[in-house]
Amino acid sequence: MAIWQGISDTLVKEIEGGVLESGGRLPGDVELATRFGVNRHTVRRALSHLQALGLVRSERGRGTFVVDDAIAYRIGTQARFEQNLLENMRVPTRQVLSVITYPAPTAIAHQLQIKAGSPIQTVTLLGEANGVPVHQALIHFPVERFPDVGQVLSRIPLGQSLPLSLSELVAELGVKTFRRKTARIRCRLPEAEEARHLKMSAQDPVFQLDILNVDDADVPVFFGTTAYCGSRVDFILDY
Rank of each mutant, 00 (worst) to 15 (best):
V19C: 06
V19R: 04
V19Q: 11
V19S: 10
L20P: 00
L20H: 06
E21L: 12
E21G: 15
G23S: 09
G24Q: 02
G24R: 02
R25Q: 14
R25C: 10
R25F: 06
L26E: 12
P27T: 01
G28P: 08
E31W: 05
L32I: 11
L32F: 07
A33G: 06
T34R: 14
R35A: 12
R35K: 14
V38Y: 09
V38N: 11
N39H: 00
N39V: 01
R40H: 08
R40T: 09
H41G: 11
T42M: 05
T42R: 01
R44M: 06
R45M: 12
R45F: 00
A46H: 01
L47P: 02
S48Y: 03
L50G: 03
L50Q: 02
L50N: 04
Q51P: 00
G54E: 04
G54T: 03
G54L: 10
V56S: 14
E59Y: 00
E59L: 05
E59R: 12
R60W: 13
R60Q: 09
R60C: 06
G61P: 07
G61K: 03
R62S: 13
T64F: 04
T64I: 15
V66T: 04
Y73A: 12
R74F: 14
I75T: 14
G76V: 04
T77A: 13
Q78C: 02
R80Q: 07
F81I: 00
E82M: 01
Q83A: 02
L85Y: 05
L85A: 02
L86A: 07
E87N: 13
R90D: 09
V91S: 05
P92S: 01
T93P: 07
Q95F: 04
Q95H: 11
V96Q: 05
L97I: 08
S98F: 04
V99Q: 04
V99P: 09
I100T: 12
T101E: 15
Y102L: 15
P103R: 09
A104G: 10
T106W: 13
A107P: 08
A109R: 07
Q113L: 11
I114F: 02
A116K: 12
A116P: 11
G117Y: 15
G117C: 08
P119N: 14
P119D: 15
I120K: 05
V123S: 02
L126V: 06
